[in-house]
Amino acid sequence: MIRESAQVAATRRVGEYTVLTMTAPGIAPLARPGQAVTFAVGGAQSSLLARRGCAIFRAQERGVYGGTLEIVVDAGEPGTRWLAERRRNDLLDVIGPVGRGFALPRDPVSCLLIGAGWRSAGLFGLAEALHARGCRVDIILGAATAERLFGVLEARRESATLTVLTEDGSMGARGQATDALDEVMARGDTSVVYASGPAGLLRTVAERARERGAVSQLIVDVSLACGSGGCLGCAVWVTGQDGNPRWVRACVEGPTFRGDVLRWDRPHPAAVLTSLSRDGSAAP
C-alpha cells in the first residue's frame, strides 16, 4: 500500500456514472482484483475529511503514461461529485491498493460474477484473472435502470453467458440481479460466486451459495473513510477464526470476504456515512 499523487488522464461518462482513468505508476502494478483505493476529496482546504473509497475497475501495469488505474464514480454526494468533476491533468491524492483481493480458485472451476450498479466495477479485473486460469465465467448485472447499469459491454466480452436485469425493465429482464441467481448457477454448475453490491444482494448471494454448496466471495459495501487502518468507518461484523463474532476492518481484512464469514445480525455501520451525505439520488 502506498500513497501517490495520480494524474487524471481521461474521463468519460457511462450511463449515470463517470469513469476516471489516472496514471498511478506506483499503485497500478500492485493492484489485485477486488482491492480498492481511497481518495482525499475537495482539495486541500476542504471541509470533507473522510476519504472516499472506490473499487479498482481496471489496473494496467504499463501504458502510454506508465501504470494506470480506472475507477467508476457514482456522484451521489458532495465528495464523489467532486471526484466526478475532475478533469484531465488534475491531480488526485490516492492511497492503495487497499485491503486484500479475491482468492482465486486453484482449478479451472465454473464461476459466477454478480454485480449491482456501479459496484459491478470491482468484478472486471477478476473476470480476466479467472479466464487466465481457464475458469468458466458467467455474469449477472443488475441495477434500478439501464442508466445505472455498469459494464454491460465488458461483461459480454468476458462471459460465457451474461444476464442483465433492471428493476424498471429498461434493459434486460425486469427484476433484481439476485432473481437470476438460481437459474444461472444451475446452468453453469457454479462452484464459486463472486459478488459486489449493496448489503441485501450480498446476503442473498451468501445464502444461495451456501444452499447450493458453492463458495461465495463478496466485496462488502462499506465506506473506506481512510484506507490506512485508523478510522474504523469500514468495520464489518464477522465470525472470527475462533468462532466468536467480532468487528474487523474491511481496509485490512477485506474488502473481499467469504460469504460464510460475514454475519448479518448487525447493521453495517458505514451506511451512516452514505445516508447522511446522500442527497436523495437512488441507490442502484
Binding site: L48, L49, L232, G233, N244, W247, R266, P269, A270, V272
Partner: peptide, 21 residues
C-alpha cells in the same frame, strides 16, 4: 468486549463523528 458498541463514522463539516468503541 467485542460487539457491545457498533463502530460508526459520520462526516460533518470539517469534522468526523465517531462512536467510541
Amino acid at each position: 468486549d467485542a460487539g457491545s458498541v457498533s463502530p460508526q463514522l459520520a462526516e460533518t463539516p470539517s469534522g468526523l463523528l465517531t462512536a467510541r468503541v
